[in-house]
Simulated scan of single mutants.
Amino acid sequence: MQAVKQTELFDLHRDADLIVADGTPLVWVAQVKGFRDSIGRVPGADLVDAVCRLSLSTGQSHFFYGGKPGVAQRMAETLSQRYPGLRVAGIYSPPMLNIGPDFDVLELCREDMEVIRASNAGIVWVGISSPKQEYWIAKAAHAVGRGVFIGVGAAFDFHSGDIQRAPAWMRNNGLEWLYRLIREPRRLWRRYLILAPMFVLRVTAELLLRSSRRIG
């Protein structure tokens, strides 16, 4: 819904090398549109797990950029315990910044870019909330000039242990949003009580329009 309002954000999604559906409703909508066998849910936290596990054999190193003070450190420690031999190239929790389409990464984060570049990290995990992380990645990846940058948002809080994930049965039935809303109402109420219903209405209108065109 943010991308609908912000054309710059829409363009970033369109130009990304990889986009995954981190919410079950997105998968349901895609399946209704005919992508039943070619899409599945890939939450950021699960993506981190899968890539870290595979990197033990491929050798990529990881840089963890984001989270509140100490979160990236705890995330790296947790993943290193879970995957012995995991190569951690660096850890950094940046200060809160006002990041948008006109964000100048070299003016405000030049030292960060130098640290990430010097680490030679193969994968840079970014968790500074959406859409800030999308705007940051678009500028930072170009400035650093190497590595794969992946925005995973709340995965930092989940893997650090700061926030507990919803039970598997809720995640598998499209109810993780409800669990997160109950746990963090002040931060997430707008996303799930305003933007989510708007998403449902917009998707419903689009599907009805597609159906009427077929009938016509």
Rank of each mutant, 00 (worst) to 15 (best):
R186M: 09
G174N: 11
R180H: 03
E176M: 10
A168E: 14
R187M: 03
E176G: 12
R183S: 15
L175R: 09
M170T: 10
P185I: 03
I194D: 06
W177G: 03
A168L: 15
G174S: 13
Y192V: 01
L188F: 00
L195N: 15
R186K: 15
R171L: 13
I194K: 07
R186Y: 12
E176Y: 09
L175M: 15
R180L: 00
P167K: 05
L188E: 04
E184I: 03
L195Q: 14
R183P: 05
R187T: 09
L193T: 04
L188Y: 01
I194F: 12
R190K: 15
R187V: 09
E184D: 06
P167L: 06
A166P: 06
L195V: 13
W169L: 10
N172C: 13
R171A: 14
R190Y: 12
L188G: 00
E176V: 13
E176R: 11
R171S: 14
R191C: 02
R180V: 06
E184N: 06
L181T: 00
L175Q: 08
I194W: 10
R171C: 14
P167A: 05
W177K: 06
P185E: 01
Y192K: 02
M170R: 11
N173E: 11
W169V: 12
L181Q: 01
N173R: 14
R171W: 11
E176I: 09
Y179L: 05
I194G: 02
L175G: 07
R171H: 13
Y179T: 04
A168Y: 13
E184V: 01
R186A: 13
E184Y: 05
N172I: 05
I182P: 00
I182R: 09
R171V: 14
R180E: 03
R171I: 14
R186W: 12
N173M: 11
M170W: 10
L193I: 01
R191L: 02
W189S: 07
E176L: 10
P167F: 04
L193V: 05
P167H: 06
E176T: 13
W169C: 05
M170K: 13
N172A: 15
N172V: 04
R187P: 00
L175E: 08
L181E: 01
W189P: 02
W189H: 10
P185M: 06
Y179I: 07
W189K: 06
R180I: 03
R180N: 04
R183W: 11
L195E: 15
M170H: 09
E184G: 01
N172Q: 15
I182G: 10
N173L: 12
G174L: 09
A166Y: 08
I182H: 11
Y192D: 04
E184R: 07
G174E: 10
W169N: 04
L195I: 11
N173S: 15
A166W: 08
W169P: 05
M170N: 09
A166I: 06
P185W: 00
M170A: 13
W189D: 05
L178A: 14
R190L: 08
E176K: 12
R180P: 01
R191Y: 00
